[in-house]
């Protein structure tokens, strides 16, 4: 995954609470290979019946502003793939589900949990606002709204560098090996032999 430091784009509203992962990508699309691109599956069934769906009116948008508890439901990372492949780099909402937020970081998608999301939604209406996320400066500006990003350092570095945890973890392989050996001698049943 490619890292990024500054992103400039258009913000669009999805004024719904509890946008679950079954809505973000219906299960029937999940056998597709990632190489095919997941963008066309994003919110598929909600969009299908609605010619005025905000994402279709503003297909160039890359910042999504939504209601609370965004990404609740299953652990399917495909929900994040669908957003990223559709061009989104930032999602702003009052709150996010835990697993979704973790998956987002691992795919270069910035999630910003802020109470200001409600006010931004109200201003956005059916239109767009220009927005800029700056990971180095720790700021997000959408229209006239300024939001300070409160990212843990590790998350910020991961997004900027496009890092994948596997390399970071393998640097601790000695410690891991020691832990394993200790666990095996103290808790032999944790290593089944059947």
């Amino acid at each position: 995954m490619a890292g990024w430091t500054r992103h400039q784009g258009q913000a669009v509203a999805l004024p719904r609470a509890n946008v679950d992962t079954d809505q973000l990508i219906p299960a029937r699309f999940m056998s597709a290979s990632r190489a095919e691109g997941y963008g066309r599956f994003l919110l598929h069934d909600l969009r299908e019946g609605d010619p005025d769906f905000p994402l279709d009116r503003h297909p160039q948008a890359s910042i999504l502003v939504a209601g609370e508890n965004f990404g609740c439901g299953s652990s399917r990372e495909a929900a994040v793939y669908a957003l990223v492949d559709a061009g989104f780099r930032v999602v702003v909402a009052p709150s996010f589900a835990d697993i979704f937020a973790g998956n987002a970081v691992n795919n270069g998608l910035l999630t910003v949990a802020t109470d200001q999301a409600r006010a931004i939604l109200a201003v956005l209406g059916d239109g767009t606002l220009s927005g800029t996320a700056d990971l180095a400066a720790g700021t997000l500006r959408i229209g006239d709204f300024d939001i300070a990003l409160t990212l843990p350092e590790a998350v910020r570095e991961k997004l900027i560098n496009g890092w994948d945890d596997i390399d970071l973890t393998r640097a601790h392989s000695g410690e891991i090996r020691n832990f394993r050996d200790r666990r095996k001698s103290d808790h032999p049943w944790a290593f089944p032999s059947t």
Binding site: S75, R76, E77, A78, V80, I99, G102, N103, N106, N107, D164, D165, I166, T169, R170, S173, I176
Partner: peptide
């Protein structure tokens, strides 16, 4: 998620 599954498989 899938990225973490890969991480657990690898480490």
């Amino acid at each position: 998620g899938a990225t973490q599954v890969a991480h657990v498989l690898a480490t």
